[in-house]
């Protein structure tokens, strides 16, 4: 389709999987990304989009002890972020703080705020409470869900509660409901589970196997988007969880991640192992399901795929919308290339 000429690129030294929007940085559009290298010394890059929006500048380069499998920026403090890392044999998760006058030295070391060391198995992800001010975190390994309370000034974390999902369901990831801070969605082998954090119980689930990624729509309550290996992207209304509200074809190979735009509710981004980023337009909300059916019947079905960015050399795993400028997103392919693109030409007219 279109070439990536519009995108702004940045190369990491090694392979990488995860990129995160620095939500707390209200002055700049910044992203954090970490490398995934088994044998080399891994790095965390703090990238900032120059004010003109034409250049991606490395604001800070920090060494990280192990390869990074997951990275999430703290929603209320731009200097704090969490990583999930692996030494190859074991997994760990920690919360880090970027040292004060950052950007000076070439490879300064990160301050470890706290280590989330309540896990034994393979840790999947760390989720920050999306409300913004709350200091709660969730870390997830294949069997357990742990709720933490962070005191960044005292540099300490405390386990609030811990619950096992059971041996059978190997959890693979999750998302924190932005509309209800007590609800977290977790993907497992055979279903999407919904946990109530007050009771730490699995209160609801959607039977759906091999969901790889899940994201809540921040603008529309009850709307959840999931990505599967084979069958593409599904949009769910949690009130009617029997069948998806809408299906999108996804990618030629696996759809790795999906992200709803924080501002424009209709826009969804997905990345896949077919080395592409797809921008989708979903007009259907659950209320309009009937009308959606009728449009399905109409001969000219509107193609939900707005654009496909295909200028990647390898599978794309990392994806993040910018909260500050919601028409900008960052994508990260396995070969360590960060590409910033703007979806401005595709924004819905209001």
């Amino acid at each position: 389709m279109q070439g990536g000429s519009s995108g702004i690129g940045y190369g990491l030294k090694y392979q990488a999987r995860c990129i995160s929007d620095v939500k707390a940085d209200t002055d700049h559009t910044s992203f954090l990304t970490g490398t995934l290298s088994l044998k080399e010394e891994n790095e965390v890059h703090l990238l900032r989009l120059s004010s003109g929006g034409s250049e991606l500048v490395c604001e800070g380069l920090f060494s990280h002890p192990d390869e990074i499998w997951d990275l999430a920026s703290c929603p209320f403090d731009q200097r704090i972020f969490s990583t999930v890392f692996s030494t190859g044999e074991s997994f760990g998760a920690a919360i880090w703080q970027i040292p004060e006058p950052y950007g000076q030295s070439n490879s300064s070391t990160l301050d470890c705020v706290a280590s989330l060391d309540a896990h034994v198995g393979k840790i999947n992800c760390v989720l920050w409470c999306p409300s913004g001010k709350s200091d709660k975190l969730i870390s997830m390994d294949e069997q357990n869900l742990v709720l933490w309370s962070l005191d960044s000034s005292k540099k300490s974390v405390e386990v609030l509660s811990k619950e096992s999902a059971g041996m059978r369901h190997s959890l693979s990831g999750g998302a924190w409901n932005p509309h209800d801070v007590n609800s977290v969605a977790a993907t497992s082998e055979s279903s999407i589970q919904f946990w109530d954090l007050r009771t730490m119980k699995n209160v609801n689930s959607i039977e759906r196997a091999h969901v790889r990624n899940v994201d809540y729509n921040t603008k529309r309550e009850h709307i959840l988007v999931t990505a599967d290996d084979e069958s593409g992207i599904h949009i769910w209304d949690l009130r009617k969880a029997k069948a998806p509200v809408q299906e999108l074809p996804g990618h030629t190979h696996w759809t790795w991640a999906v992200r709803c735009n924080p501002e424009y509710e209709e826009l969804i981004l997905s990345v896949g192992t077919d080395s592409a980023v797809n921008l989708w337009f979903t007009s259907a909300s659950s209320e309009k399901q009937a009308s959606e059916r009728s449009t399905e019947a109409s001969p000219q079905r509107v193609n939900p795929l707005l654009n496909s960015y295909t200028d990647y050399e390898d599978s794309v795993y990392g994806l993040a919308w910018s909260t500050r400028e919601p028409w900008i997103f960052a994508s990260l392919s396995y070969d360590g290339r960060v590409v910033i693109e703007s979806v401005k030409p595709f924004l819905p007219r209001r």
């Binding site: 039977e207 759906r208 196997a209 069958s231 599904h234 029997k242 069948a243 299906e247």
Partner: peptide, 10 residues
């Protein structure tokens, strides 16, 4: 019919 599909997969 998506219900079929899930069954098939699981």
């Amino acid at each position: 019919s998506s219900s079929n599909e899930t069954e098939g997969v699981t």
